[in-house]
Every structure is written in C-alpha cells, then in structure tokens.
C-alpha cells in the first residue's frame, strides 16, 4: 500500500513518544550518568571515568553470566521453536475442541511470572512436589537446590512449560491462514507430508516464526523472575543469568556505578541483536513487496 507523506502525523505519535520517553529516556540518561561515577551513598558522586566498564568487561563473573545467558537462550530456542511447530502441525485445523485446546494452552502465558516460579519450585521439590517425589521414587537422584545440572533442567523445563504455547499459538494462527485449496491441490498431486510441510506450510509460517523467535529470544534474554524464584540463581551461581546478576548488583549490593555500566553493556548487546533481527524482518518484507 502506498503511503502518503504527511509530517503532521507526528502529532498522532506525540503522546506515545512523550510517554515512552518519560519512562525510557530519563532512566537511560541516569544510567549513563551513574556508569561513569562512584557513589558512597547520600547522593555523593565521584568521577570514575570508564573504570567500571573496564572492570566489568574483564570480570570472570560477567563473562560466565553472559555465557550462561546465551546458552540458556540457545537451548530455549532449540527446544521451543521445533516443539511449538510440531504441536501446531498436530492440531486439527477445525473442530469442536480446538477453542478449548487453545484456551488451555494459553493458560500458562497468563500466570504471573513469580507464580510460575512458585509452581515449579513446589512441583519439583523432592519432599512435597509431584515431579520431584515421583523421580525420587523411580530412584533418580534429582535435587535442583544442590545439583547444578538438575537446576538447569528444572529452569529449562519450566521455560518450555511457560512459553512453548506462544510459539504454538503463533504457528497455529499462521497455519490457519493457508487456504484449503492448497491442501486439496497437494492431495491431488499426491504430495508427501514432508513436501506439504516444506513447500506449503513452512513458507507461510516464515513471518510468524520470525516474530516467535524474536519474542522468545528477547524474553529469554531478559529472564529474571522465574529462575530467581525457583533457584535464586543457585546452586552457587549456576543459574545466575544476566538480569539476576544485575539486580543482585544494583539492589542487593547497591553498587550503582558497576550496575549502571553492566546495564549499558547489556543494553548494547540487546540493541545489536534486535537491530539485526529487525533488519532481517523488514528486509524480507521489502523483497516480497516487489
């Protein structure tokens, strides 16, 4: 659709800009200011230059948190996206039970994040949890508060439980938009299931999948509440992801300068990755428009 050039459209956007600027720009500027100073409380600030940045960029703690974060996001995407596609494909295209299924699937998405944490904290406990207790009865030594691997498994399974539905719903919506005629034509040609998936369904899912991957990457990259409630970042610092580490630094230790420098580095990573995603997304639409 050809759009008109109209600079007055800025007036329509102004409320949004003011509102978001108030909540985004002022805090961001403050973070930048803090990041070059040191404070000992009482609003007394001392110039520290770029020491905090050097400090963080070379600290083992930051490197391992960053590495854990990328590993976590990678695992999450590798599990949730294929699983979500598979479930969306397995869902019938229509039927009496489809709305019921979708509503049940959407349920985990609307649970407050700390309640999600609480649910899994309880569910996986060896003494009172269904999962932990069953595993213990099966003779599996499972203890997420002691064993780092078990803690990781718990957090990953929890995230799969929490967010796979988003991928399912997005993909299902994408599949719904494929006209029946396509499938009928495929049946006449005797196409295999794989061929239908590869040449009819996947191209249609392309766009929704990009949205799903983008949302899942971003949200898993800033995950805080759920693992914090379940493991508190432990055992040791096995599940201390970037946000958990940051909050620990800013609010727990009140280390303002260091936390601010951390925030800026975090933000630059997010900015780079989301810019890359955004360019790919909009670049693709430009191609298809032509």
């Amino acid at each position: 659709m050809e759009k008109k050039v109209n600079q007055k459209a800025w007036f329509f956007v102004l409320p949004v800009v003011l509102l978001v600027a108030f909540s985004a720009l002022i805090p961001l500027m403050t973070v930048v200011n803090y990041s070059v100073q040191d404070t000992f409380g009482n609003n007394a600030f001392f110039w520290a230059g770029t020491d905090w940045f050097t400090d963080i960029l070379r600290s083992e703690r930051f490197h391992s948190a960053l590495w854990r974060q990328f590993l976590f996001s990678g695992i999450i995407l590798a599990i949730e996206v294929p699983l979500g596609i598979a479930i969306a494909l397995a869902m019938p295209r229509r039927g009496l039970w489809v709305p019921v299924c979708l509503v049940l699937m959407a349920l985990p998405l609307l649970i407050p994040w700390n309640v999600v944490g609480t649910i899994w904290q309880v569910f996986a406990r060896v003494d009172i949890g269904l999962l932990g207790h069953t595993l213990a009865n099966l003779g599996i030594d499972f203890n997420y508060t002691q064993d780092p691997l078990d803690a990781w498994i718990t957090v990953v399974v929890m995230d799969v439980w929490h967010w796979t539905s988003l991928v399912v719903l997005l993909c299902y919506a994408g599949l719904q938009s494929i006209p029946d005629a396509y499938y009928q034509a495929a049946r006449i040609d005797g196409a295999s299931k794989w061929a239908i998936f590869r040449y009819i369904q996947l191209p249609k899912l392309h766009r929704v999948l990009l949205i799903a991957v983008l949302l899942r990457f971003m949200d898993s990259f800033m995950i805080y509440t759920e693992p914090f409630v379940v493991t508190g970042g432990g055992p040791g610092s096995a599940t201390t992801f970037l946000s958990i580490d940051l909050v620990k630094m800013a609010i727990g230790q009140f280390d303002l300068g260091r936390a601010a420098a951390f925030s800026i580095i975090y933000f630059l990573i997010i900015l780079l990755v989301s810019w890359a995603f955004y360019t790919v997304m909009t670049g693709k639409t430009k191609e298809s428009d032509r």
Partner: peptide, 14 residues
C-alpha cells in the same frame, strides 16, 4: 534533578 547525577562529560555526550 540531583538524583540523575549529571556530569559535564555525559551532558556533552547527550
């Protein structure tokens, strides 16, 4: 605005 802890270098940057 004291809580924002402005400094000259960051001010010039913005």
């Amino acid at each position: 605005l004291a809580w924002m802890a402005w400094t000259w270098p960051t001010g010039i940057f913005f």
